[in-house]
Design a protein around this nucleic acid. Structure first.
Ligand SMILES: [Mn+2]
Ligand SMILES: [Mn+2]
Ligand SMILES: [Zn+2]
Ligand SMILES: [Zn+2]
Lengths: 148, 148
DNA sequence: CAGGACTTGCAACTGAGTTGCAAGTGGAAA
DNA sequence: TTTCCACTTGCAACTCAGTTGCAAGTCCTG
């Protein structure tokens, strides 16, 4: 049993949609694919430049915008605990919420079925067709909660 | 039975905390108190200037920041459907989620107990002390969902 | 392998939000 | 009521993430 494999990589998904696959895009897609944490645009640029130092800020922004428009990545605000920009992550099937510690800034993820329930409620009661849901919680991690 | 009255106005809450009450602050607090929709900083400034045309952008930003630090207002991202700024609203007791239509940009509120449940789950399972939760849903209103 | 539509890098621009500072003021204390 | 000063304001300059127009470069279909 090898490592869990996604049905389709980001590159594959984009090519399927008839999007031209350039060297620069491949770099950004691959790094988002394998990213561990949550990256903001500056972090994506920095990572991308390790592979291609010539890649430009504008290209990164344009690629992130393309991915978001295509519904392949999620844009997070994460309560701006670590700066003024937004963060990006591969869009997953099972939803999770993000919890940010206002003390140390650490972000943890918390999977839950309550979001799916909420979305069902919304659809049923309001008639809205839900496309995505973002849940961001501010709190204090056990360590930072010590002594208030 | 007169109109439902809040226990404490924003001004009262701030004065209680020993904050100096200036003419400019009073204007901003009162306007947030009575605001119907969701206002961004520019809208707050514009509203405030109807009362005092001399009030400065910096004062508005500083006041919003003060209110946020004091936990009296909530800062919302609302998926940036209407610009690049954030939105502000009086912090309420009963939580509600915000649903933004990606078609027409309209924002509606949806009260639910699921958020309280989620917060309880988080506290119990992760040990985090939850301070606030923001739920922002992107979707299509019935009108905009017609014909996809 | 050639052609053309699409993409990139660059550099200039945008605009929301921030900051240092001198002048003004709220409100406690006398 | 008047005094006084720490705190607040308006202003103007600044910051900096993100955007945009354009000429040069590249993907990819035929
Ligand atoms: Mn935001
Ligand atoms: Mn609201
Ligand atoms: Zn912490
Ligand atoms: Zn709509």
């Amino acid at each position: 049993m090898d490592k869990k494999r996604k049905t389709q990589t980001l590159s594959e998904a984009l090519v399927t949609r008839g999007v031209r696959m350039t060297r620069q895009r491949k770099i950004v897609l691959d790094l988002l694919e394998n990213a561990s944490g949550h990256l903001d645009a500056a972090a994506v640029l920095e990572q991308a430049r390790r592979t291609d130092p010539g890649i430009d800020r504008a290209t990164v922004y344009r690629t992130l915008s393309l991915l978001k428009r295509s519904g392949l990545i999620e844009e997070l605000d994460l309560l701006h605990l670590g700066g003024k920009g937004h963060y990006y992550e591969r869009r997953e099937t099972g939803t999770h919420v993000h919890i940010g510690c206002v003390g140390c800034g650490q972000i943890v993820e918390f999977p839950t079925r309550l979001i799916a329930r909420l979305e069902a409620d919304i659809q049923e009661i309001t008639g809205y067709k839900v496309e995505s849901t973002r849940v961001e919680v501010a709190g204090r991690c056990p360590r930072c909660a010590q002594g208030q």
